[in-house]
Amino acid sequence: MAASAHGSVWGPLRLGIPGLCCRRPPLGLYARMRRLPGPEVSGRSVAAASGPGAWGTDHYCLELLRKRDYEGYLCSLLLPAESRSSVFALRAFNVELAQVKDSVSEKTIGLMRMQFWKKTVEDIYCDNPPHQPVAIELWKAVKRHNLTKRWLMKIVDEREKNLDDKAYRNIKELENYAENTQSSLLYLTLEILGIKDLHADHAASHIGKAQGIVTCLRATPYHGSRRKVFLPMDICMLHGVSQEDFLRRNQDKNVRDVIYDIASQAHLHLKHARSFHKTVPVKAFPAFLQTVSLEDFLKKIQRVDFDIFHPSLQQKNTLLPLYLYIQSWRKTY
């Protein structure tokens, strides 16, 4: 089996927390979720979201995140109150960019949308954001926290390059993509939290790379249903696996070995980020709550012996909000 052949990389499970039942964490995340308004986002309300009498641009960002990046939404709820709305805006910006690729039928249209967001970032730093909910909220975040323009532009530029429907040539190319998107998002989150620390940035770099790799793995069944495969070609070739094997949902050992190798790289990034947690300011830990969902996925895929098409991998963990709150309460990542 794939797991038994390579099992030495995987460390002990961390979500089991001995003695936790003896201490009762304060009510927090679930209460916040219940208090949030929840009407559906419609095209009509989106168009009017920044106008008078609408929910408001902040509510639009929150709803977009809740629907399109639920794990990011849950993590954002546990940030300090003064930072929450800015991170909602930042993550909503990322969602807007991420959904361009799947929402257009022609690359030219995707490039036009990316050009809109490039100009939007430029206009935000000229205090002239367009009348668009996410743009307005992002402008507020930039003004409030003096966010670095370079990180925002890196996210747009990398998403634009990724409009080509090509597999990553190697794991390094996937890591570079993750660094310029997910890690950049974390650098900006640290700025919102008021953290300027080399060790925190180092952790953000590795956690962002782990996030990018896990996202690529999780999306494999969806991409396969659209006749697309984006997994690193070098690892596929190493194990003699073709793109057609993934399109046919082949579950042979060599296919699972490909998934094992890729998942192991995410695991190593996560492990390395945690190896120097004592040197990272505690104030930075809330920015890294996504490690909970990353670890949850890596454990699940290990349990199914790296069968990327196993139905259990597509099921939401209903206990994730609780695990996130516990992680926040324990002040760790």
Rank of each mutant, 00 (worst) to 15 (best):
S45L: 07
S45Q: 15
S45W: 10
A47S: 15
A48H: 15
A49S: 15
A49R: 15
S50G: 09
S50V: 11
G51N: 13
P52L: 08
P52R: 15
W55A: 10
D58M: 12
L64S: 14
L64V: 11
L64E: 08
R66S: 06
R68A: 12
D69K: 02
Y70C: 06
E71A: 08
E71H: 09
E71S: 07
G72I: 07
L74S: 02
C75P: 04
C75H: 14
C75Y: 07
L77I: 08
L78S: 06
L79S: 13
L79I: 11
A81P: 14
E82T: 15
R84L: 09
S85F: 09
S85T: 13
V87K: 01
F88Q: 12
F88H: 10
R91E: 03
A92E: 00
F93P: 01
V95T: 13
V95C: 15
E96K: 10
L97H: 01
L97I: 15
A98K: 04
K101D: 11
K101V: 14
D102Y: 06
D102V: 06
S103M: 13
S105D: 15
K107A: 14
I109K: 12
L111P: 15
L111T: 11
L111R: 11
M112C: 11
M112Y: 15
M112P: 12
R113D: 05
R113K: 15
M114E: 03
M114N: 08
Q115S: 12
K119R: 11
T120R: 03
V121N: 01
D123S: 12
Y125C: 06
Y125Q: 03
D127Q: 07
N128R: 14
P130G: 13
P130W: 03
P130K: 04
P130Y: 04
H131L: 13
P133F: 06
V134D: 01
I136K: 15
I136Q: 13
L138F: 01
K140V: 00
V142P: 00
K143L: 05
R144L: 10
R144T: 10
H145L: 03
H145E: 03
W151F: 07
W151G: 04
M153D: 09
I155C: 13
V156R: 03
D157M: 12
K161H: 13
K161E: 12
K161I: 10
K161N: 11
L163F: 14
L163H: 07
D164C: 10
D164T: 15
Y168V: 14
R169S: 09
I171Q: 08
I171A: 04
I171K: 03
K172T: 15
L174A: 02
Y177P: 00
Y177F: 07
Y177S: 09
Y177R: 04
N180I: 06
T181H: 03
Q182E: 13
S184G: 12
S184C: 14
L185N: 04
L186H: 04
L186T: 07
Y187D: 02
Y187E: 00
L188G: 05
L190N: 03
G194E: 07
G194H: 05
I195R: 04
K196C: 07
K196Y: 07
K196I: 05
A204Y: 01
A204R: 01
A204S: 05
I207C: 04
A210Q: 00
A210L: 01
G212C: 06
G212A: 07
V214L: 11
L217G: 01
R218A: 07
T220F: 06
Y222V: 12
S225Q: 14
R226V: 13
V229G: 05
V229H: 10
L231A: 04
M233V: 07
D234M: 00
C236M: 14
C236P: 00
M237C: 10
L238R: 12
L238A: 12
G240K: 11
G240R: 11
S242D: 03
S242T: 09
S242E: 03
D245G: 07
F246Y: 08
F246C: 08
N250M: 12
V255A: 12
R256A: 10
D257G: 12
I259A: 07
I259R: 06
A263G: 05
Q265F: 11
L268S: 14
H269W: 02
L270R: 00
K271E: 13
K271R: 13
K271C: 13
K271H: 11
K271I: 12
R274C: 02
S275N: 14
H277M: 07
K278H: 09
P286N: 10
F288W: 03
T291L: 05
S293R: 04
S293L: 11
L294S: 08
L294F: 04
E295H: 11
D296G: 06
L298F: 09
L298Y: 03
K299T: 12
K299W: 15
K300D: 10
K300I: 05
I301V: 13
V304Y: 09
D307A: 03
D307P: 00
I308T: 00
H310A: 10
P311M: 08
P311Y: 07
S312H: 09
T318A: 15
L319F: 09
L319A: 10
L319W: 12
P321C: 13
P321T: 05
Y323M: 11
Y323L: 14
Y323K: 11
Y325A: 11
Y325G: 06
T332Y: 14
Y333Q: 01
